[in-house]
Simulated assay, not measured.
Amino acid sequence: MKLRIFNMLALRAFRGLGNIIGCRSLPSRQLHCSSCQKTLIFERDYELPDGPLYAAKLEKKNHIYRVVSIETGPTELEIILTKDSLEHGVAGEVLSVETEVGRQLIKNFEAAYASPENLAEIASSFTKKSGQTISGRRMLLWLRTREYLTCAMREDVEWTLTPGMAARAFLRYHKLVVPESALKLPDYPITSSDPESWKEHDIGITVNSVDTVAMKMVVVPWTKK
């Protein structure tokens, strides 16, 4: 016969029961449990007698158990986010995270278990509501949390800023890939010879041809790192 003790609270109760009935306690090294997520499997040192089982017929030795093994449960938990987070992702995204992290997010009402019901209700609702893909919503979240984008340009050559040049500058400085067609620059020209060009400008970035984010772009002199 084997018993399973799922956490330290149950383990302490089991030890207390053993003391009450006058049994020999288990060695402390066998009772060690460093995490509440572990399962301890116990086995009787002495098998029970054959035939009908009555408590009156049990001897003290039949109440002595030993630890057979210690099992750890799953280390990852599949969740679905209910709130946007720069650290984890956007609402409606399904993730596999560490068990402790996932339970903490669920406790803070930032995520829910990725059950079939929650997947059908939460994930689909966010996608239909925004019309964006998960990656597109991640990009929108990142852009909206940025104060400005830096466009580093050279001072020793003549240039007039184009969407392609700005896109390459964003790729070098921010590792951000922006198609030329998705980048809208101001109507006035931005040139190297104009001192007013080396300042802050209003631009627009369109994500997946659905949402456009108004951003600030700062033109700064390029320096070799």
Results as ranks from 00 to 15, higher is better:
Lys224Gln: 06
Glu98Gly: 09
Pro116Gly: 08
Asp187Lys: 02
Ile203Val: 10
Ile80Lys: 01
Arg15Cys: 15
Arg103His: 08
Gln30Tyr: 14
Leu77Pro: 01
Ala169Thr: 07
Val213Trp: 04
Asp202Ile: 15
Leu141Ser: 03
Val90Met: 05
Val219Tyr: 03
Ala56Met: 04
Thr206Leu: 10
His63Arg: 05
Lys175Tyr: 08
Ala55Leu: 06
Arg146Leu: 08
Ala13Gln: 14
Glu121Leu: 12
Thr145Ser: 09
Arg168Ile: 09
Glu180Gln: 06
Thr82Asn: 06
Ile190Leu: 10
Leu143His: 05
Arg15Leu: 14
Phe109Met: 12
Lys61Ser: 10
Gly73Ser: 13
Ser192Arg: 09
Arg168His: 11
Leu58Phe: 10
Glu47Phe: 11
Phe6Arg: 01
Glu87Gln: 15
Trp222Glu: 12
His174Gly: 12
Cys33Asn: 14
Leu31Gln: 11
Glu180Ala: 03
Glu200Tyr: 07
Phe42Ile: 01
Leu149Glu: 03
Asn208Thr: 06
Glu47Lys: 15
Thr145Gly: 06
Thr212Trp: 13
Glu196Gln: 11
Ser69Asn: 09
Ile134Asn: 01
Lys2Ser: 07
Ile20Ala: 13
Lys184Asp: 09
Glu155Gly: 14
Lys224Thr: 05
Gly22Pro: 14
Gln37Ile: 05
Glu43Val: 03
Ala166Arg: 03
Leu95Lys: 11
Thr75Ala: 13
Thr212Ser: 12
Ser130Trp: 02
Lys225Cys: 00
His201Asp: 00
Glu76Leu: 11
Lys57Glu: 12
Glu47Tyr: 13
Leu53Pro: 00
Leu48Asn: 12
His32Ser: 15
Gly102Ser: 12
Ala182His: 11
Arg144Ser: 00
Gln104Asn: 11
Ala91Asn: 01
Thr133Ala: 04
Met165Asp: 08
Cys33Trp: 01
Gly136Pro: 00
Val177Gly: 00
Phe170His: 03
Glu100Ile: 13
